[in-house]
Design a protein around this nucleic acid. Structure first.
Lengths: 131, 131
DNA sequence: CGTACAATTGACTTTTACGTAAATTCGTGG
DNA sequence: CCACGAATTTACGTAAAAGTCAATTGTACG
């Protein structure tokens, strides 16, 4: 078994997650991740790797980079000021509403795909089940 | 109560769904919808409107136009040839897998946002519940 | 019947999220 | 020490999904 690595190279992460080095540098430019450096070379810590997972998850859900940025900000410690905390809670609730909408969209689409499959099965039956 | 309309104008749909006319024309160019014409003016039938709903649902889930195109194709009657039907069933299963992944992503993100909210509440408690 | 407004077409622009290529720089093994 | 491979920087390119603008064209209506 492998212990938890201290650092990952950029190519290790590109292979693990199927993204390009360009993509990782782009995410750094956009301020989504902050790998440390040894000289000019980027070293990704487990926390960077975890962040990358969250970024890619956001991408799969169709969020833009700036939306992902926003979500990631929320994961960091809550701000110190009461007004800011309430603002964050409002944002959290908005994101949740959006996610629930997406979930409903998924359920609907899945249901329709089930219908499609049924149609296919029926059609196959019509054509004679023997193949 | 309003009966089912026969036709919708382009601006009616843009208002109902919050999209621009450019967008609807773009979808038509891409072959997603096929409104009929009176002269040069587009007339959208209820079926076009329904299609538009499905398109926007796909957009919310982060699917590209061509992916949405693919999904919409599935909703049309299954093909006549056995091989084609099996191919379609395979595609359906692939899409379902993708949607289930998205659903997992949503659950994870929702759980994390719950954590964020809890953190906020705790933080507020620390600062004194009186506000 | 004219005009004002809604809709269309076509062309160009913009934004996002990277891709790609060229030139450069580490650093490690032989 | 030096070559070679891996990583970096800089800069320009591109595809997708519209936005925007200009020039027309219907067409409804007073």
């Amino acid at each position: 078994m492998s212990a938890i690595r201290e650092y990952y190279s950029i190519t290790e992460l590109t292979r693990e997650f199927g993204v390009s080095t360009r993509t990782l540098r782009f995410y750094e430019d956009e301020g989504l991740i902050h790998p440390v450096r040894r000289g000019r070379t980027r070293l990704f810590r487990p926390s960077d790797r975890h962040l990358l997972k969250q970024i890619l998850r956001g991408k799969r859900l169709g969020f833009s980079i700036s939306e992902i940025q926003e979500i990631i900000q929320m994961y960091k410690a809550p701000p110190g000021e009461v007004g800011q905390i309430h603002l964050m809670m409002k944002r959290v609730e908005e994101k949740r509403a959006e996610l629930r909408q997406k979930r409903r969209d998924i359920e609907e689409t899945l249901a329709e795909l089930d219908q499609v499959e049924e149609g296919c099965i029926e059609r196959l039956a019509e054509l004679g089940v023997n193949t």
